[in-house]
């Protein structure tokens, strides 16, 4: 056990996968010599050499397309895209090839690979460096989409992703990389997909979040507790597969729900969760479901970024609103 942040926990997972499985290849821009733009792969290039931790040309489509070929050919590539806005040039490869090969070959050829993408705002980064495009990937059939919110889950979910027989989009909340520390086992372990975690039990309102928003949501739940409102906080951990049962059970218990996402509001993943709740348990609701989201704007640059990213105050306000009825 060691107390690690998310970046270190991911590094540990990659190191353990590279060590135990000779077919695992880490590739991406600057992942080797510099350890990646967020230093997540720090030291792995030295430990495993340039053939296992591969610095690639600046070509996202090429990285994903080559990794796809490797995966069909029996390797287990773990590709890094530096920022979510840079994943768009690779989207053709992801949506037209990676996500489809199993279906279009009816299981004959498969692409077991992991695409790691740091995502989200909150660190005042340059334009295109702050996007939350998880809904685009969750909306693409054939992909699993995973979003850890803690160091323990980051390691366990990544090892699960590497073991998975299908392509996994692994989203890493940029601003949580070094802001949370937690005891993480040294040995490898996995955290299953499709199992939400109740991060805080409560009786009055269910707050549903994932990734970077889990931290804000837990802060909000503290403030609500001080007001005598018992919030139950769910950390979804994976969007595809989605643990809808845990969401429904919690909402049936509390009768109220707030869904929190950092991404723009329209057609976001929160909308899917709201739909599931109303389809399955509308009559258990005591109040309309609220969403707390980013806006349908381009993520503002550093000086105005805070207007966009949901914070604890907005989550508290939305929870209070559900308590009014």
């Amino acid at each position: 056990m060691a107390e690690l942040n998310i970046a270190q926990a991911i590094n540990g997972a990659l190191g353990s996968a590279l060590e135990s499985d000779p077919t695992v290849i880490v590739l991406g821009e600057d992942v080797g010599a510099t350890g990646g733009v967020f230093r997540v792969t720090d030291g792995l290039g030295e430990r495993f050499g340039p053939d296992r931790v591969v610095d690639t040309p600046v070509a996202e489509s090429g990285i994903i397309g080559a990794a796809f070929g490797m995966a069909i050919g029996g390797l287990k590539p773990v590709a890094e895209i530096q920022f979510m806005g840079f994943s768009y040039p690779a989207f053709d490869q992801i949506a037209n090839h990676v996500s489809r090969i199993r279906n279009r070959s009816r299981h004959r050829f498969t692409a077991p690979m992991v695409i790691r993408i740091p995502y989200g705002a909150g660190i005042g980064a340059a334009e295109h460096h702050s996007e939350s495009a998880e809904a685009i990937y969750a909306h693409t059939p054939g992909l699993k989409v995973v979003v850890p919110a803690s160091p323990y889950d980051a390691k366990g979910l990544l090892l699960e992703a590497i073991a998975d027989p299908d392509p996994v989009i692994f989203l890493e909340p940029i601003r949580l990389y070094r802001s949370i520390r937690q005891l993480v086992p040294d040995d490898p372990y996995t955290v299953p997909f499709g199992v939400a975690e109740i991060r805080r039990p409560g009786n009055d309102v269910t707050l549903i979040a994932y990734g970077a928003m889990v931290k804000e949501t837990l802060e909000a739940s503290e403030k609500l507790a001080a007001e005598g409102i018992g919030a139950e906080v769910l950390d979804l951990r994976s969007l595809v597969p989605l643990d809808a049962d845990t969401i429904i059970e919690s909402v049936e218990h509390t009768g109220r729900a707030v869904v929190i996402q950092e991404a723009p509001r329209t057609a976001g993943f929160a909308t899917e969760i709201v739909s599931q709740i109303q389809e399955r348990t509308l009559y258990s609701l005591a109040a309309p479901i609220q969403r707390v989201t980013g806006w349908d704007t381009v993520v503002p640059l550093r000086r105005a970024e805070h207007h966009f990213v949901p914070d604890a105050a907005r989550i508290v306000a939305a929870a209070r609103k559900t308590m009014e009825s």
Partner: peptide, 9 residues
Amino acid sequence: IHAVGLGWA
């Protein structure tokens, strides 16, 4: 590029 990845593998 898939043939590049396959050959690389």
